[in-house]
Design a protein around this nucleic acid. Structure first.
Lengths: 214, 214
DNA sequence: AATAAAAGTGAGTGATTACTCACTTCGAAA
DNA sequence: TTTCGAAGTGAGTAATCACTCACTTTTATT
């Protein structure tokens, strides 16, 4: 309950929310992430939130608007921070080498991923079907974040720490490795025992040196 | 139309299908992959297939049975072959080095991915929500395939071509890279221009040597 | 040609869906 | 204390949902 409050606070920090509104959002996040958006009925959300069904539609004109109002702040606050926080880490107190940057990035994204897991599940599920969400995602992530990542990569390429592969391909490969780790860790095999420190090191080493023996 | 016939033939080769049954399956694959299972109505499938709604339920007791009967053969015929074909390639006419094996694997998976894209989308979408499918998937893919991959990895480790990282981690990292490529290629940015030969080489090089400069 | 089983049909079923609206309750400002 | 807009309610609505069933048509076997 307390932890959920924190999640809400992070996603809707600037908005004033009624008590019942919070309950609606939490119930919606819970059910969407568990059963999927289309398979969730508004009556179910109302029931779980302990609220009349009409109350939902007092605040959100449609069911889709409820979905969007959950996902939108996430997109700007999870992928946005990649830009702001981590990028400033690089510029303001730049990591000497790519290795430290990678390690910091993985650990940082892991925290966010873990904390916002239910909402991230919703995004992953609904992006293929909701053009509205996809467009937002592309705008926020593909364009903004991507451009910044490219700059970071080129920075380390200039320093001679990264091979001369097109930055777009470098980005794809590194991002695949990081998200592959997070998805294995929190979605596919959350039950397994994970030594996160060691796995992070392995991932960093892999991104930099691969699995081949010289 | 012809290409779709081939897809059906591959998935349902041993079953005798009526003309209308084929049309139902194609319409279902199409709509499920486009809008998602839960958001697709049986009346919509019937309409798209040019068939009465009752005809669907003549062959499939429930909507979920229709889903399962599409996904099940895919799991055993697409992910099964990962085991059989590719693994036998390694054992019967073993690749001398890990590099050749990787290249062959990526190219092989790319063909399959491309050909069965709509059905793969359905699997990816529905596995989180359908315990029945997830169990099948785990049984057929995660267990069998995974065990075989581990053997291959250990084989190359014994040959001294792969570093001494636990095979499970090696598998995760390599599979992430390959699927990261395929997902970028066919799901996220199918519209972009891709030079598959070059990207395959980059992915192979990345898996073996990373992006770091020695 | 006769027959039976399988395939196909479409109107009809009760349940559920997202959403509305006339109404009540609440909370803060005047 | 009065007042007024926002918050909350829940019975009601038309549409749609997955699914049924009595019936017709097609197909294969003799």
């Amino acid at each position: 309950m307390v932890e959920e409050e924190i999640l809400l606070q992070q996603l809707f920090e600037e908005e004033k929310l009624t008590d019942k509104q919070k309950k609606i959002l939490l119930a919606a996040i819970d059910t969407f992430s568990e059963k999927g958006y289309a398979a969730t009925s508004t009556s179910e959300i109302a029931k779980k939130a302990g609220v009349a069904e009409g109350t939902i539609f007092r605040h959100y004109k449609t069911k889709k608007e409820l979905l969007v109002s959950i996902v939108t702040p996430l997109i700007s606050k999870v992928f946005g921070p990649f830009i702001v926080k981590d990028f400033h880490k690089v510029l303001d107190q730049p990591f000497e080498n790519a290795e430290d940057f990678l390690r910091a990035t993985i650990e940082n994204r892991r925290e966010v991923f873990k904390k916002l897991l239910p909402v991230i599940k919703i995004i992953m599920q609904e992006i293929p079907f909701q053009p509205e969400l996809r467009e937002q995602f592309v705008e926020q992530v593909a364009k903004k974040t991507y451009e910044r990542i490219l700059v970071v990569i080129q920075d380390y390429q200039d320093k001679g720490q990264i091979i001369d592969m097109p930055p777009a391909s470098v980005a794809r490969l590194a991002v695949s490795s990081i998200f592959g780790y997070l998805i294995s860790r929190y979605i596919f095999f959350p039950e397994s025992e994970w030594d996160d420190e060691i796995e992070t090191e392995r991932t960093v080493h892999f991104i930099l040196h691969g699995i081949g023996k010289k």
